[in-house]
Simulated assay, not measured.
Amino acid sequence: MKKNCLLVLMTLSFQCVFSQVGINTPNPQGILHIDGQKDNPVSGSTFTPAQQSNDILVNSTGKIGVGTLVPVTKIDARNSGNGAIGFGASSLTASAADEGAVRYNSGVEYSNGNEWLPLLTAQPTNNKVIVIAAKTNNNVKLATPSIPTITAGLQNRASNYLVDWSKTFESNSGTNFNAATGIFTAPRNGIYVASFTTDLAPLAINYTTDPLNPIQIEAIWQLYDNTTGLAVTNIVNTVKCVNTMSSNSVGNIDAGSNCTASFYMTAGQRLMPYIWFNLNNSIVANFSLNNTGGYNNLTIAEQ
C-alpha cells in the first residue's frame, strides 16, 4: 500500500513539474519557454523587452511568441529587437502548399490555392509626385505658351494658357511643377493623372449663333515632348473637355469647365493646361476668372 501511494505521489509530482517546461529558465511563462540568453528573472512575471527579445514561448492556446511573451497571433514575432521573418523557397505547387502559404522565390509569393502570386512588396526608389496648385489671378499667355504673359484678362476665342499658379503642395523634389509657367515636367516614365478646374467670373452670355463656333468653354491639357520647345511641332497629345453653354442669358452666370485625364509620360515630357471659350462676340482680353471662391485648381498625381 505504501509503495502504491508513493508511486501515485511521484506521478502527480512529475506531471506538476512538467506542466510547464522551461529551457534555460526556472520561471517559464507558458507551456514551453526557451530563454536564449538565460537572462530572465528567476521568479515573477515582469520581463524587460531586452529579456523577451531572445525568448521563444508557446502558450496554452497554441500561440507562438518569438521575442515576445504575449503572442496575439498564431506566430507573433513583434518585439523591440529584430522582428523580421525570413521565408525560404519551396518546390511545392500552389495547390499542394494550399491557400495562404507564403514562400520566397526571387521575391515573396503567396498561394491562392491554384497558383503562386507575387506580393508587391517592393517600394519605388523615389516617392510618387503629387502636385496641388490654385490660381487666383487672371494672368495668361494667349495663343501660344511662348509669348509674353498677358495680365489684362482672358480672351474670347483664344487659347488662354494658364500661368502664375500658386503651388500649395508638391511631394518628392518639389521642382517638377513650375508654378510661374504652369508647366509640369515628368521626372521619369510613368502614368500621371492630371486634373484642373476653372470658373469665369459671372458674365452675360450673349452671342449670335454661329454653327462653326458653338457657345462653349473648353478645358484642355496639352502634352509636349521632352525638348525645350513649346511650338505646335512639340505637341505629343492634346486632351479636350468641353462644356456647352446656352446661346444667351438674361443675367450673369458662371461659365466653368474642368478636365481630368491620364497620360503616359516619358521622363522630361511636359504637361500644361489651357482654356478656350466662345461666349460672346468679343475678341478682346477682358474676361476674368472667378478668383474668390477657390474654383480654379490643379492636381497632378503620379500613379
Results as ranks from 00 to 15, higher is better:
residue 21 V to G: 00
residue 219 A to V: 06
residue 118 P to E: 07
residue 59 N to I: 03
residue 24 N to P: 04
residue 244 T to P: 10
residue 192 Y to I: 10
residue 195 S to L: 06
residue 158 A to I: 06
residue 296 N to G: 01
residue 127 N to V: 13
residue 247 S to L: 06
residue 133 A to E: 05
residue 166 S to E: 13
residue 8 V to G: 00
residue 133 A to Y: 06
residue 172 N to M: 07
residue 97 A to M: 08
residue 212 L to W: 14
residue 14 F to H: 02
residue 197 T to D: 11
residue 28 P to D: 09
residue 236 V to H: 02
residue 81 G to H: 08
residue 122 A to G: 03
residue 204 A to R: 15
residue 108 V to I: 15
residue 71 P to L: 00
residue 181 T to Q: 05
residue 218 E to Y: 02
residue 182 G to C: 01
residue 133 A to W: 05
residue 169 F to R: 13
residue 74 K to W: 08
residue 264 Y to N: 12
residue 117 L to A: 04
residue 285 A to L: 04
residue 3 K to W: 07
residue 203 L to R: 11
residue 112 N to K: 08
residue 41 P to Y: 04
residue 15 Q to N: 03
residue 174 G to T: 12
residue 11 T to A: 02
residue 208 T to P: 07
residue 158 A to E: 14
residue 59 N to D: 14
residue 129 V to K: 09
residue 212 L to Y: 14
residue 238 T to E: 09
residue 229 G to S: 13
residue 210 D to S: 12
residue 102 V to H: 04
residue 137 N to T: 15
residue 171 S to G: 02
residue 103 R to F: 03
residue 95 S to C: 00
residue 167 K to E: 12
residue 186 A to W: 11
residue 88 G to R: 11
residue 42 V to W: 06
residue 187 P to C: 00
residue 227 T to C: 06
residue 103 R to C: 03
residue 229 G to P: 02
residue 177 F to Q: 05
residue 81 G to A: 04
residue 24 N to M: 06
residue 269 Q to K: 09
residue 89 A to F: 14
residue 77 A to Q: 07
residue 283 I to E: 07
residue 135 K to G: 02
residue 145 P to Q: 05
residue 173 S to D: 15
residue 52 Q to K: 13
residue 259 C to V: 05
residue 71 P to V: 01
residue 203 L to C: 03
residue 106 S to T: 14
residue 127 N to R: 14
residue 119 L to H: 07
residue 165 W to Y: 07
residue 172 N to H: 13
residue 80 S to I: 07
residue 180 A to Q: 10
residue 259 C to N: 11
residue 285 A to G: 09
residue 46 T to S: 12
residue 251 G to R: 07
residue 245 M to F: 11
residue 64 I to R: 06
residue 244 T to M: 08
residue 225 D to H: 08
residue 103 R to G: 01
residue 73 T to N: 13
residue 145 P to C: 02
residue 145 P to D: 03
residue 230 L to C: 01
residue 277 F to W: 10
residue 66 V to M: 15
residue 295 Y to N: 15
residue 231 A to S: 13
residue 110 Y to K: 10
residue 263 F to V: 00
residue 155 Q to A: 11
residue 278 N to E: 12
residue 260 T to N: 06
residue 175 T to N: 11
residue 204 A to I: 15
residue 277 F to E: 02
residue 208 T to R: 09
residue 20 Q to V: 05
residue 259 C to T: 07
residue 109 E to S: 09
residue 274 Y to K: 04
residue 223 L to H: 14
residue 151 T to N: 14
residue 123 Q to K: 13
residue 33 H to P: 07
residue 250 V to H: 04
residue 21 V to S: 00
residue 302 E to I: 06
residue 80 S to E: 12
residue 18 F to N: 04
residue 13 S to W: 00
residue 73 T to Q: 12
residue 153 G to F: 13
residue 2 K to I: 11
residue 2 K to H: 10
residue 262 S to Q: 15
residue 171 S to E: 04
residue 28 P to L: 08
residue 78 R to A: 05
residue 140 V to W: 10
